[in-house]
Design a protein around this nucleic acid. Sequence first.
DNA 1: TCGTCGCTATATCGAGCCGATATATCGAAC
DNA 2: GTTCGATATATCGGCTCGATATAGCGACGA
Lengths: 180, 180
Amino acid sequence: MHGYQLNRELSEQLGGLSRVSYGSLYPSLRRLERQGAITSEPGTTGARRKTVYAITSEGERLFLELLEETPQENQTEDARFRVRLAFFRYLPPETRVRLLERRRAALETRLADFKAHLRDADTTDDYQRALFEHARAGTESDIAWLTELIRSERLKYEITAPVGERRRASATLRRKEHTS
Amino acid sequence: MHGYQLNRELSEQLGGLSRVSYGSLYPSLRRLERQGAITSEPGTTGARRKTVYAITSEGERLFLELLEETPQENQTEDARFRVRLAFFRYLPPETRVRLLERRRAALETRLADFKAHLRDADTTDDYQRALFEHARAGTESDIAWLTELIRSERLKYEITAPVGERRRASATLRRKEHTS
DNA sequence: TCGTCGCTATATCGAGCCGATATATCGAAC
DNA sequence: GTTCGATATATCGGCTCGATATAGCGACGA
């Protein structure tokens, strides 16, 4: 694919959810080529030039590495997680569950912070209080959503729950863990 | 205030919701001083140096200008809106309602995009579908939240609704519009 | 026939933010 | 005494964004 096409396909698949500017895209493509993750080949359609890129095996390795890495909670991790999830089909089920659980744990920490803030901080400002209350509700909704994704993933692939959570597993699930 | 203190107060008030790194904060303070929005004065506590900043009247003007400007929908507007709302108390009620309505309109556009995508795009990928469905639900929740904030703001200050929305206003509210 | 409009396609620039890191002071705790 | 964590400022590299420039292209109408 060439850059413009790449951006168009990305916008079509992830429209609204994740966009990239050309000021990032083209330098990224050159960087990836320098790193050996992609190769480029000049092509033309009529008089219009295109630079057609192809992923290398090193690039596929890097893609999977970036996809399954679980970085520190930072400013950009919300958006990054969305992109990760959009490409979940490329990860093995165990890794999916691990990433979902790690994400949920991070959100639970965040939720606890919001609750503590609503309880402790002497915020008299109505708007700030509304902001925190809405953030709390949104985070709880995100956590419930992740819990459902994890449940659905386990049902599909009969993944063993971590030891600490086995007590909460159903009898059916526990039997499957033993027999599979 | 000095930089470190500024960051601490900001984290305490908006913890989790908006953080700023020192790599942004200190350059920002110098930029603001260059622009005449703040003044700096070197101070010390014992042997420890501090640079104490104070806002100027030009800075207050700039603050309000930044607070009430309604920029194009861009990548960072979600976070920016949260910060705006956190400082809503500094804006007059009419401006608050105007900003809330503009924000809601932007989210309604986004919601329509999500719905169109879920309807039209031939996404066979379960994770991408789940992502869009969750984004749709979250956006609807945000819109309902904004609607409630607008309603509450109108009740508090008896603001006149835009002409196009008067039909939906309650009899009570309509009477108040006429009598106030 | 020509103009111009919007889409395709690549590229670069300045401004700005982040995360990491460096440096140094300080109080408290052990 | 020293070590630890909080206070305090600063800078760097890497990266993104949004704006802008350039140019080929098809389609449509004046």
